[in-house]
C-alpha cells in the first residue's frame, strides 16, 4: 500500500510517498537519493545504515518508513554545515579514522549521538557505543582515538 508520510529530515519538513513495505533505508537511498546512508547487510548487523531517529542512532534497514511519520531523522547529509565540516567529521579525517569510508557515515552519526548524551566518554564507553557499527578497515583504533580527542576537546571547552 502507498501512502504519504511527513517527517523532519535534516531539519526540514519532508513529505514523501512510500510503500508500506519499504524500509527507511530504501526510501532515503532510492526515493530521496540520499545515498550517504549505506546498505551494508540489510539485517541490522553492521550499522552502515545508521541514522538518528529523534537523536537516537538506529539501523534504518530495520525501520519501516511508514513508522517515522511525525518524527525527526538526521542522516549524514545533515551533519555538516554548508561551509564547513562538523567537528566529528573534521576530527575523523584529521585522526585517520577514515579508510574506505563505507562505515564512516554511520560511525559519525553514532558518535554524534554518543557525544550529545555523554560529552566526556571513557574509552570503554566509546567502544561500547560504536559496538554495533562494524569497520573492517581500521581495527577501530583510530576511530576510538578520534572520538577520545573529541571528548577531550569538549572537556576543554
Amino acid at each position: 500500500m502507498e501512502r504519504t508520510i511527513e517527517f523532519v529530515l535534516n531539519g526540514e519538513t519532508k513529505k514523501v510517498t512510500v510503500n508500506d513495505n519499504q524500509t527507511l533505508l530504501e526510501v532515503l537511498r532510492e526515493k530521496l537519493d540520499l545515498t550517504g546512508t549505506k546498505k551494508g547487510c540489510n539485517q541490522g548487523e553492521c550499522g552502515a545504515c545508521t541514522v538518528l531517529l529523534d537523536g537516537k542512532p538506529i539501523n534504518s534497514c530495520l525501520t519501516l518508513a511508514v513508522r517515522i511519520e511525525g518524527r525527526s531523522i538526521m542522516t549524514i547529509e545533515g551533519v555538516a554545515g554548508k561551509e564547513s565540516l562538523d567537528p566529528v567529521q573534521e576530527t575523523f579525517n584529521e585522526k585517520g579514522a577514515i579508510q574506505c569510508g563505507f562505515c564512516t557515515p554511520g560511525m559519525v552519526l553514532t558518535t554524534k549521538a554518543l557525544l550529545a548524551e555523554n560529552s566526556n566518554p571513557t574509552s570503554a564507553e566509546i567502544k561500547e557505543a560504536i559496538s554495533g557499527n562494524i569497520c573492517r578497515c581500521s581495527g577501530y583504533i583510530k576511530i576510538i582515538e578520534a572520538i577520545q580527542s573529541l571528548a577531550e576537546e569538549q572537556e576543554v571547552m
Binding site: 542512532p57 539501523n59 530495520l62 553514532t110
Partner: peptide, 9 residues
C-alpha cells in the same frame, strides 16, 4: 542485549 543500535529500537 544485541548492540546499542538494536537497543534503541
Amino acid at each position: 542485549v544485541g548492540s546499542p543500535l538494536l537497543r534503541s529500537q
